[in-house]
Design a protein around this nucleic acid. Structure first.
Length: 577
RNA sequence: CGGAACGUAGCGCAGUUUGGUAGCGCACUUCGCUGGGGGUGAAGGGGUCGGAGGUUCGAAUCCUCUCGUUCCGACCA
């Protein structure tokens, strides 16, 4: 591509709302253009990268799955059939056609694929079945941000598999797991696979893993332990606290005045006790939908310096959502904010004690009266009824569950997520096949997502410096930025020859033949981040008859004769990742 | 959905408090000089100040409504 006749514009400044490097750099490098909140137009250079990522994904998927393309607009009936029309709620973009029929833009495709499957497969003999697509999705995220990282419209590879039994589902799951590893390795990522929470997608007990690209700006927190190879999303992570010193000497239940002290910190400082000698009380309301729709108020007891993991709470209760009680709710229950405790409750509350709490130790806790706390509260003695359950949020310095290692935290970008779904959709949508005995059975399903555009954002997030993007070779829009900085017609002709030679040799090259100074071109080259920059300058060429090649990532410089340009470039490229 | 802020040229911003000719930097166009890290001089083009209504002799500026965007929180394959 020749830049003089090309469509490309870079920028020194970008909109103030671009916060993270990948968003800023993609804007500055002229790769994307915002169309609406969380919706972007993909410009030519980015489209080439998208194609490359798609091809890497395709080549691995084609080994284990068939590619299909599902409709982007899907009928509401399918979602009503699976029961998700109402459950998906806000993030599904719904609308009506001129005949007043419900439609939506696919935020995900379990329903569609199950519909496709049941229309074709009638026998166990066709199992396992594995289908995938690469397509645009739309999720009306409440808060899109960070450019392609969390857009509302995005490109995703999603695959779905159907199985007669668990063994088969496990085997296919492993195939996708391995395939994903290959994909992310080929893209040159530093990534990690973590245990994840399945959320609303799958039933309990089903496997699910996330593929996380390591990056400080990632939105997810990963708990990991090098020694014993443990890694889990913080939502899922189960760890134990490092040794806690419990209070056992003074266990006389005593009221202590704590005027105006409504935080653990204040109370513990005042009483000169470590926060681990206090209990944090949190009040949540759990909602259950469906046939047994109801609400339940929960009082949670954590060690004073621990944080609640809401996902664990939700999973333990098996409810559809949990919400922290607001002031109004607390008033209804007669609970004074800042002085809530588990002893002497009058309201109907289900009490959950975090498993890190030693039920036989003594604690400081709210006394249910404004400006009063208890000291010497012993849960096993002073709380009428409670359940013990792991609810705390893991954190750095914790021990692994088997206590063989210490965990650390780092941030990641979720670029892939694989699930075992069980028979949730096949049962709900009556996608049954006949088994060996001629009996109808609902196949088990797996589903496997990989965000193409998010992966690209992650690639930039992980590969950039202060001057711009540094594309890994396999996903770079082009391989070589050919900056011609010659002036005279004579040399321009030579530059043109070199460009034509590169083209005919099949080198993926951008030819910067614009009327601009060298500095300008070098800045643009760095910003765009192609792996190699080939410089043709009169000064060097006159002196030595050589051109210069600079590696974007390392800054390493090479020189070569004009006739060796193609072979030298190819040689350097083959050594890069 | 709760809280907050912001909409002035393609982008970044000033002007709004105290109503009176719509500005600056980058980008863009033309010409010249320059030519190894966004160089430089001159001359240009581009804005119904998000929209609607109101107050006023006069509104980017004051008032009301509305739309859009962003931030914090909650939410989230």
């Amino acid at each position: 591509m020749k830049l003089s006749s090309g469509f490309w514009q870079t920028y020194k400044e970008v909109p103030a709302d671009a916060e993270i490097p990948s968003h800023r750099l993609m804007m500055r490098a002229g790769l994307i253009q915002k169309s609406a909140a969380g919706i972007y137009n993909y410009l030519p250079f980015l489209v080439r990268t998208i194609r490359k990522v798609e091809e890497i994904v395709r080549s691995e998927m084609d080994k284990i799955s068939y590619e299909v393309t599902m409709s982007v607009v899907t009928p509401g009936e399918l979602w009503k059939e699976s029961g998700r029309w109402d459950v998906m709620g806000g993030e599904m973009l719904k609308f009506k056609d001129k005949r007043d029929r419900d439609l939506c833009i696919s935020p995900t495709n379990e329903e569609t694929i199950t519909d496709i499957f049941r229309g074709v497969v009638k026998s166990y003999k066709n199992l396992p079945t594995s289908l995938y697509q690469i397509n645009t999705k739309f999720r009306d995220e409440i808060r899109p941000r960070f450019g392609l990282m969390r857009g509302r419209e995005f490109i995703m590879k999603d695959a779905y598999t159907f199985h007669a039994d668990v063994e088969c589902m496990d085997k296919t799951y492993q195939d996708f797991y391995d395939g994903y590893c290959k994909i992310f390795e080929r893209m040159g990522f530093e990534y990690t696979v973590v245990e994840a929470d399945a959320g609303a997608m799958a039933g309990p007990g089903c496997k699910t893993h996330e593929f996380q690209v390591v990056a400080d700006t990632g939105e997810d927190e990963i708990i990991y332990c090098k020694e014993n190879d443990y890694a889990a999303n913080i939502e899922k992570a189960q760890t134990k606290r490092a040794k806690v010193d419990f209070e056992t000497s003074d266990s006389t239940l005593t009221e202590v005045p704590t005027p105006g002290m409504a935080t653990i910190e204040d109370v513990c400082n005042f009483l000169k006790k470590p926060q681990t000698h206090s209990l944090k009380s949190l009040v949540y309301t759990a909602s259950y939908t469906g046939k047994k729709a109801r609400e339940e108020d929960i009082l949670i007891q954590l060690l004073g310096d621990d944080t609640l993991n809401e996902v664990k709470l939700k999973n333990f209760l098996g409810c559809d959502r949990v919400l922290p009680a607001n002031d109004k709710k607390l008033k209804e229950l007669g609970l004074p904010v800042g002085f809530i405790g588990p002893h002497g409750l009058t309201a109907e509350l289900r009490i959950l004690l975090d498993s890190a709490v030693n039920a036989d130790a003594a604690y400081v806790a709210g006394a249910l009266k404004v400006d009063v706390h208890y000291s010497g509260l012993v849960p096993s003695r002073d709380i009428t009824a409670f359940e013990t359950v792991d609810l705390r949020l893991s954190r750095k310095g914790d021990l692994t569950w088997d206590e063989t290692g210490t965990v650390d935290v780092r941030r990641g970008i979720e670029v892939g997520h694989i699930f075992q779904l069980g028979d949730k959709y096949t049962t709900a949508m009556k996608a049954t096949v006949l088994d060996k005995n001629g009996k109808a059975m609902a196949p088990l399903m797996g589903c496997y997502g990989l965000g193409i555009t998010r992966t690209i954002a992650a690639a930039v997030e992980q590969n950039h410096d202060e001057n711009g993007i540094i594309w890994p070779v396999n996903v770079a829009p082009y391989h070589v930025y050919f900056a011609s900085i010659v002036k005279s017609d004579e040399y321009k002709t030579i530059a043109e020859e070199i460009y034509r030679e590169l083209l005919s040799a099949g080198v993926e090259v951008v030819y910067d033949d614009r009327k601009a100074g060298p500095g300008f071109k070098f800045k643009d080259a760095d910003l765009l981040g192609l792996p190699l920059r080939l410089v043709f300058g009169e000064r060097n060429f006159k002196e030595s008859g050589e051109l210069e090649i600079v590696e974007r990532k390392s800054g390493t410089k090479h020189t070569c004769k004009k006739e060796d340009v193609v072979s030298t470039l190819q040689k350097i490229l083959s050594g890069l990742s």
